[in-house]
Design a protein around this nucleic acid. Sequence first.
DNA 1: TTGCTTACGTGACCTACATCACATTCTAAA
DNA 2: TTTAGAATGTGATGTAGGTCACGTAAGCAA
Lengths: 191, 191
Amino acid sequence: MEAKEILRQYISKIVLLSDEQFEYVFSHFKPLTFKKGQVIISEGDQVDCEYFVVSGCLKTFFINDEIKMYILQFSMPTWWTSDYNALYNDTKATINVDCITDAEVLCISNKDREKICSEIHQIEHFFRWRTNKGYVASQKRLLSFMNNDAKKRYEELLALYPQLYNLVPKHLIAAYLGVSRETLSRLYSSH
Amino acid sequence: MEAKEILRQYISKIVLLSDEQFEYVFSHFKPLTFKKGQVIISEGDQVDCEYFVVSGCLKTFFINDEIKMYILQFSMPTWWTSDYNALYNDTKATINVDCITDAEVLCISNKDREKICSEIHQIEHFFRWRTNKGYVASQKRLLSFMNNDAKKRYEELLALYPQLYNLVPKHLIAAYLGVSRETLSRLYSSH
DNA sequence: TTGCTTACGTGACCTACATCACATTCTAAA
DNA sequence: TTTAGAATGTGATGTAGGTCACGTAAGCAA
């Protein structure tokens, strides 16, 4: 299925748009393709856009003291990502986004998102819904961090995204769980 | 200043409403007062409302195995709280909200929020803005958890909310930081 | 093929923090 | 004012997970 159709179906699960309205909305998105390893946002960049994943897998991550990487999110098809802090507050990026696999995305600028949100009430509703969902997911993840040890978080992740196990290298899974790759290796060899 | 005026000023920083519009919006909020220690949402409850804090301080927390408490958020004036997972997905509460001090809040039902959001585009915009802010704050907190040790998180918290140090008991600050009260005590005695 | 880089496993040791135990305040109700 | 229950400090000890070190295997370019 092509990008346009995927976005259409995704939005139509939440709000009803006429064909003309959707065409208009879609005209603000720019399709982009990336190769495995390509960087989309890197620390210090001016951030203008957010990204809707059509195919492939991105990672959104933070690098501490030029050494340690922490992955905030793996973005699979129909997920959105960006450095939202930088995007909303018009500051330089503090986090990075790049491609774990070849990927197709749809990109929309902050300005255009705000424009279509103010022009089409239903679209504003859609983006509110989407951010709500992200907020709840982020709170859940925070709770899991406070409450669970590495092993439980690992099992949680695999239950949620079984595909990840074969799709992404183990050291990236470790960076998502917030443990060292050595610890992760010990976790699943004991299991 | 009274509750109504505080809400008005808070909303007007983001969107412009006519007096009639604001009156209409405000008519959907119910003012409530609580005593220190009173419970607002408790695990297992049906969750119908979210709460805007006018005065006082609430805590939003999770209790693990009936033993350990993790505080997701302290809610000071102009903050919002609820069990948003339960509220949006119409499931039973898994987290709790109660009062650290006497508190005044404004309460709005999920139904009424959705109603005024669909009736007044500007209000939908306001709630989208608010959730964005919450999402970014939640991501920052997650990153801080992954990246910093307890001492750094403690200093971060005090820098962000200096009032908290005298307002809330130390074991609650520990529960927010995700460390034991003993560890917290050692942290600031060494500092 | 040869080499080079990245991924991954595993042992030895270290550290931040938890847990338990007990003492000392503080606070609010009787 | 008395007193029971919270809140807090602090020592002793246990442990999850980090760090360092080294080895093997797998992918990839020349």
